[in-house]
C-alpha cells in the first residue's frame, strides 16, 4: 500500500457537539463535549490525565486545552462514548469565538496529545495539587482520577488559588471533593482579591502552601499555573525541603500542530506537545530557560 494511503491525516479533527457548559468566572467557561458520530468515539483511544487536545472553532482556528475531566480509558468497563471536558479562558481570537458558541453547536477536537501525569506511580503517596487560576484545568483530570479511586492514594490536599474571589474556578465542585474522605480543599485568593464574607485563605499561593506545613516525606506536589507563580512556588518548595523529582508540573508553551512538527513549542530539544506537557521539576531544571 502506498505510504500516503497508510498515513491518516493527523490534522483533521473529529466533530464534537457542545452538550453543556458552565461559566466558572466571567471569562472562564467549562465545556462538556460529545462526539457527533459515536463511531468516531469508538476509534478514540482514550486519554490519561495531563494530556491535551486541539479544539477547533471552524472559521476562527484551533486552541489547545487540557482534557479536564476524569480520564477515559476504553479498555476499562466503559461501553459508552466519552464525554470530553475542557476549561478555557477567553483571551484570544479562538477562545473568544468559542465563548460565543451555544449548546448544540459543533466544534472540532483532535487528540489526545502529549504525555501524562504518572498517576499510577503515586499510589500510596500523599498528594498536593496546587493550581493557580486557569492552571487548575490542567490538574482537574488527575485530581478526579485520584478522587475516584481515593483508596489507592494517601492524603490529598487541593490548593486552588486565584487572583480574586470572582476568578476562582471549579467553585461548584469543590464542596464535593472536600466530602471525600482524606481530601482537603484549600482555597486562596491574592491579597486584595478577597470580598466580604470570603471564608478561604488570603495570600499568594507559595506563602499559603508554606503555611500548610506539609511534610515533604513521601509526598508528591503537582503544580500548575502562570510562570511567575511557578517560579516562586519552586523557591518555596526548595526552602521547605522538597526534592525536584517530587514535584510535577506542566509546560504551557504555545502550540499549533500537537505532534512535534511545527516547531514553536520547543524548549531546547524538548518538544512540549510531543515530549510534554508533563515534566518534573527535576526535568525542568535540565532544560534551557526558554518557557
Amino acid at each position: 500500500m502506498p505510504l500516503a494511503e497508510a498515513v491518516p491525516n493527523p490534522y483533521q479533527p473529529s466533530l464534537v457537539r457542545i452538550h453543556d457548559f458552565l461559566d466558572e468566572t466571567p471569562d472562564v467557561r467549562t465545556l462538556r463535549l460529545q462526539f457527533v458520530d459515536d463511531n468516531e468515539a469508538g476509534g478514540f483511544a482514550g486519554w490519561e490525565p495531563g494530556q491535551f487536545g486541539q479544539f477547533t472553532v471552524f472559521g476562527a482556528g484551533e486552541s489547545v486545552f487540557a482534557l479536564a475531566n476524569a480520564p477515559w480509558r476504553p479498555n476499562g468497563d466503559r461501553a459508552s462514548a466519552p464525554t470530553i471536558e475542557c476549561t478555557f479562558r477567553m483571551v484570544g481570537k479562538v477562545t473568544s469565538a468559542l465563548r460565543a458558541m451555544s449548546k448544540g453547536q459543533v466544534i472540532g477536537f483532535r487528540g489526545p496529545y502529549g504525555n501524562h501525569f504518572p498517576v499510577d506511580d503515586w499510589k500510596g503517596k500523599d498528594l498536593v495539587f496546587i493550581g493557580g487560576g486557569i492552571g487548575m484545568a490542567a490538574l482537574r483530570s488527575a485530581m478526579l482520577d485520584v478522587i475516584n479511586r481515593k483508596s489507592e492514594f494517601g492524603d490529598v490536599v487541593i490548593l486552588n488559588g486565584a487572583r480574586s474571589v470572582g476568578d476562582m474556578v471549579y467553585t461548584d465542585e469543590m464542596p464535593g471533593w472536600q466530602e471525600v474522605d482524606g481530601v482537603e480543599v484549600v482555597r486562596t485568593v491574592d491579597p486584595g482579591g478577597e470580598t466580604e464574607g470570603w471564608d478561604g485563605e488570603v495570600g499568594l499561593l507559595p506563602n499559603v502552601f508554606e503555611g500548610l506545613g506539609l511534610d515533604p516525606d513521601g509526598r508528591i506536589v503537582i503544580a500548575c499555573g502562570p510562570p511567575i507563580m511557578l517560579h516562586y512556588l519552586f523557591l518555596s518548595l526548595g526552602k521547605v525541603g522538597y526534592s525536584p523529582d517530587q514535584v510535577v508540573t506542566t509546560l504551557e508553551n504555545k502550540m499549533k500542530c500537537g505532534i512535534g512538527h511545527c516547531g514553536r513549542c520547543y524548549v531546547g530539544p524538548f518538544s512540549v506537545c510531543r515530549d510534554g506537557p508533563v515534566v518534573t521539576w527535576a526535568e525542568l531544571n535540565e532544560l534551557p530557560k526558554d518557557y
Binding site: H261, C262, R264
Partner: peptide, 8 residues
C-alpha cells in the same frame, strides 16, 4: 528550516 503556522 521546517517550522510552520496553522490558521483558518
Amino acid at each position: 528550516c521546517s517550522c510552520f503556522d496553522m490558521n483558518h
